[in-house]
Design a protein around this nucleic acid. Sequence first.
RNA 1: UACCCGGUGGUGUAAUUGGUAACACACCAGGUUUUGGUCCUGGUAUUUCAGGUUCAAGUCCUGACCGGGUAGCCA
Length: 586
Amino acid sequence: MQTPNRLPDDSGEKGLGSAPESNAKPTLNFIQEIIAKDLKSGKYDGRVHTRFPPEPNGYLHIGHAKSICLNFGLAAEHEGGLCNLRFDDTNPIKEEDEYVKSIIEDIRWLGFDWEDRLFYASGYFEQMYQYAVRLIELGKAYVCDLNAEQTRECRGTLTKPGKDSPYRNRSVKENLDLFERMRAGEFPDGLRTLRAGIDMTSPNLNMRDPVIYRILHAAHHRTGDKWCIYPMYDWAHGLEDSIEGITHSICTLEFENHRPLYDWFLEQLGVYHPQQIEFARLELTYTVMSKRKLLELVKEGYVGGWGDPRMPTISGLRRRGYTPESIRNFCRGIGMAKFNSVIDIARLEHSLRDDLNKRSPRVMGVLRPLRVVIDNYPEGQVEELDAVNNPEDPSAGTRKVPFSRVLYIEREDFREDPPRKFFRLAPGREVRLRYAYFVTCVDVVKDARTGEVVELHCTYDPATRGGDSPDGRKVKGTIHWVSAAHALTAEVRMYDHLFTKENPGEVEEGADFKANLNPNSMERITSCRVEPSVAGATPGSRYQFERNGYFCVDPDSSAETLVFNRTVGLRDSWGKIEKKLQQKKR
RNA sequence: UACCCGGUGGUGUAAUUGGUAACACACCAGGUUUUGGUCCUGGUAUUUCAGGUUCAAGUCCUGACCGGGUAGCCA
């Protein structure tokens, strides 16, 4: 018994309608409209049954997430709706079991469930073969002895019609015999093909007697050596959809020209006929989204693998610290169109921050430590100060943070010669140490040789314990800190866009997208200090390091060394001001 | 030069299907704030062009222009 797909319970769920991250009335995108119409007319007996059909030849990326959310979402928003997971594994040369595993893991992680409906195109190979036999018997398919090059020559061009293959008029009997012998392995790779007999003069190249079976003596990751002929996409895909009783077969735009063929096969065979609908694939600024290019980055070692935190893959985003919710919200918000568009990656980062802000416990962590001694604080004294865990969520409670005489603050929170609008620490200036005391910088210690600031001396005002001044005195800045004696040492990996250009494909003559790789897409900082409350944090745990950004514990982390990935920074308005000030100077 | 698809602010999508062009992101300005975060308020800016139908056109018609896809025994 099959039960409906359920969409994970996102707050503020409004269905897949475009745009409405807010309270806007839910509007239907063009696919939802088609489904609504079909439901009304009873076209598929009121059923909605979609499928997500990845080829296991690479890892899933954020573009796939759009399709996954679409297909599973469509099923979830209709009573009794179903969505299958189906591996489109018709090309053994490119496909591997490793990819199958990762795809399953990624879709699960995204929060979707196909229950018992996990299918493989390879599971239908026998049926597809029988359908091909039927097409031959119908006189609509023939075995062709042309090789690949000859086939291409015969096909004609975009502007010139093709010519009929000399083997087009073989008898049904001969075709049946030859096709059976193709299957039996009598011929080497490429010697013959089975082609549909349609129309070599069609303006749609896909209709010019497309190949539907090729000979490939290759082991398949699921069927092993059982087959040496494999179906082509156009033949296989519609049959897969038909066999599974799919109602709406959603694919990307480049298959638009294939729809006539999709329809033709099912019509000739007289079998159940789903409807193919095309939508625009997702593109993002500052990254690439083709499996081919991602594979290239992996194989040539530009990144650490498919799951490198800089990759737009699901596994990369996961390791980086993205939440499934943020990805789903993003996918819901970007809408659905019939033309290619490029979405600003800032939008993905926005849904990330939006989600992380609500759920991340706050913690203090210093990325680039600067030693501070509080001269008038008693040596050896330690105070446990109260800190709020999450201002967005009172139920998260508070924790104790140790304070002592020697602290670390962020190097960039001190300027010996502070520019205008710099509200942080400087000689003679008073700031608040978050949840602790007001401190005033009284001395700056520099390295005699390099002139580098190595230590600060401050005095604190005991009356400001907790961060409030009883006399109503105001400070412009509040900075984070850790107690030197209590802090944990950590490694932090900072990430930036993988490419320096919005459109990585925009390159000089002769160069390719890799010329736009960002040489600074990762920076490793090794002697960071974080407050002791994060001790023992396990991989995947997420925090906001106050004023710094969102971080998550990397799998490389161990009991000895904590390793964090910076998932995304906080919005940085001081950074913008500073940039502007610098531009004015020039 | 063939066929198919498509053009709404800087970006991505809406527009009760012929009736005041709206929402989000980004950007800018201000307010709140023990995170220069969050939150709140305000602002800039849009129907590719030319005709036509209509009381009324982003929406319908015609033409132009621009963009994308297609010549794998890949999917």
